[in-house]
């Protein structure tokens, strides 16, 4: 297990699998409501960042390229989060929630 966790590639894979399982479980739990949505998006961002930094090897890339991809992650997640929040029925968005 220690050998598994010492290898960045194996560790990243394991984290991505755990994060995927967590979002699946979140959706199963109907009690969480909109919180599940915020956490789902936060987990998608964290998973995306792991792929960008570890799989794509941008952790040690020139700052410009790392910033471009990390900037995309932050911008896309932030816009989705904002629209999601203001689209919630309690904020007067959309029709009746399903």
């Amino acid at each position: 297990m220690n050998t598994l966790l010492r290898n960045t590639n194996h560790r990243t894979w394991l984290l991505l699998v755990i994060a995927t399982a967590a979002t699946y479980w979140l959706r199963e739990d109907a009690q969480l409501g909109a919180i599940a949505g915020f956490v789902t998006l936060a987990i998608a961002y964290a998973k995306g960042r792991l792929v960008v930094l570890d799989y794509m090897e941008l952790r040690h890339a020139p700052r410009l390229w790392r910033s471009l991809l990390e900037g995309w992650l932050v911008a896309v997640t932030a816009i989705i989060l904002l629209v999601y929040r203001y689209g919630l029925p309690e904020f007067g968005g959309g029709n009746v929630a399903g």
Binding site: L69, V83, G94, A97
Partner: peptide
């Protein structure tokens, strides 16, 4: 990424105006 980013934003904006349809 820019192209898909635009798709993602188009999706979430449309979803906000048709929540029931999207959730169902």
């Amino acid at each position: 990424l820019l192209m898909f980013g635009a798709f993602f934003i188009a999706y979430i904006v449309n979803r906000a105006s048709e929540l029931a349809v999207f959730n169902d």
